[in-house]
Simulated assay, not measured.
Amino acid sequence: MKKGKVYGVGVGPGDPELMTLKAVRLIEENDVFFVPGKEPKETVAYKIAAAAVPALAEKELVPVYMPMRMDKEEILRQHRKGADLMEEYLDKGKDAVYLTLGDSTVYCTFTYLQALLEEDGYETELVPGITSFCAAAARVNIPLCEWNEPLHVMPAMHKLGDKLDLPGNYVLMKSGSHMAEVKEILRASGRDVNVVENCGMPDEKVYHDVEEIPDEAGYFSLIIAKEHNRDL
């Protein structure tokens, strides 16, 4: 029997209207959905997709638990466990969709599973979605970069030192749990700062200055730090 194919589908940052037509079509056409979390219907990715395609609620949802761990061996064990679970369904010959928040190519959990699945001979396809940083820039009505400005996308900024000293503009992701430390880095940089927390979601919050940002900002806090002077 031919093995099924799995699509890693980005559902965008939060607003269901920002899902792509391709993502909607694949959700409508498929019956099996892998969702990263213990309770699929409680995950952000599922809620976004279901708001755009209500029929998803009636389809088969398979939780693929991907816990946050610091131990590398444990991380690899969880990835292997998740891939093995997915392969059980793909071996039945049916295609499936892995729902992922944002874009499927930017800091995406499916990336790790994709590598294992392909090593085992399964076909995969990445379906892009609107990234959180593009959506956040649009939300605050500013361009991310212009003319010859570089754009630096950084995860967990608190781990990268105490300076934003490269030319161009910065996007800082996944720094919410260390926001007090990140705010000090932002102050020292002298850059213009905008932050969107939970972009496109019902509890979205926007901050236009470092001093407005709460130290306890949430995990989905996206920071855009831009240079004052631009050489166009």
Rank of each mutant, 00 (worst) to 15 (best):
87 E>A: 03
94 K>Y: 06
168 G>L: 06
65 Y>N: 15
185 I>C: 02
54 P>R: 09
32 V>A: 09
194 N>Q: 14
146 E>D: 13
178 H>I: 02
162 D>A: 12
95 D>C: 12
40 P>K: 08
214 P>S: 03
165 D>L: 01
28 E>L: 14
16 P>S: 09
114 Q>L: 13
116 L>T: 03
227 E>L: 02
101 L>T: 11
171 V>N: 04
179 M>E: 13
188 A>F: 09
18 L>A: 05
90 L>F: 02
47 K>S: 10
115 A>E: 15
70 M>N: 15
35 V>Q: 01
24 V>C: 12
221 S>C: 04
167 P>E: 12
172 L>D: 12
155 P>N: 08
164 L>W: 02
205 K>V: 05
148 N>I: 13
189 S>R: 03
103 D>W: 09
50 A>R: 14
43 T>G: 13
95 D>F: 09
125 E>F: 00
201 M>T: 00
162 D>H: 13
125 E>D: 00
111 T>E: 06
43 T>D: 08
88 E>K: 00
198 N>M: 04
35 V>H: 02
123 E>S: 04
158 H>P: 02
142 I>M: 12
229 N>C: 06
1 M>D: 11
180 A>C: 11
70 M>T: 15
77 R>Q: 15
53 V>C: 12
67 P>E: 00
128 P>S: 12
161 G>A: 05
145 C>Y: 10
151 L>M: 12
196 V>H: 02
34 F>K: 05
224 I>G: 07
93 G>D: 04
56 L>G: 07
71 D>E: 15
89 Y>M: 01
36 P>K: 11
151 L>C: 01
66 M>R: 11
85 L>H: 00
72 K>E: 15
51 A>C: 03
28 E>C: 05
